[in-house]
């Protein structure tokens, strides 16, 4: 994730107020991850179990098929890989160095 330039105390809103709605979207939680899911498309049967179970809505869908993962929000919990019903798994967890 790119380094943001953080504001000094004089430039921040008083009392830590966050202005505007829907701002949780801007809080990218993917940097908590120590492992990341990798999609093995050739094995995927598009059952969408991973999409249903993902607690962060981080499974990307395209034309009704699993297209990959949104690494801005994926926390690497591994539920998608655990729930994948395919024998030998269509989702694999690999170590993540956030590179």
């Amino acid at each position: 994730m790119a380094k943001e330039k953080k504001k000094g105390w004089k430039a921040l809103t008083k009392g830590g107020v966050i202005e505007g709605g829907g701002t949780a979207k801007e809080f990218k939680t993917g940097d908590w991850r120590s492992e990341r899911p990798i999609l093995l498309s050739e094995k995927c049967i598009n059952c969408l179990a991973c999409w249903m179970y993902c607690p962060d809505s981080a499974v990307i869908m395209k034309d009704g098929k699993v297209a990959g993962f949104d690494y801005d929000y994926c926390k690497g919990c591994g539920i998608c890989a655990h729930e994948c019903p395919v024998k030998g798994k269509a989702i694999k967890m690999i170590p993540d160095n956030h590179g």
Partner: peptide, 12 residues
């Protein structure tokens, strides 16, 4: 709309 009482980590 605003959010108040959000979590402040060591960076804020």
């Amino acid at each position: 709309p605003i959010t108040i009482g959000a979590m402040d980590l060591p960076d804020y």
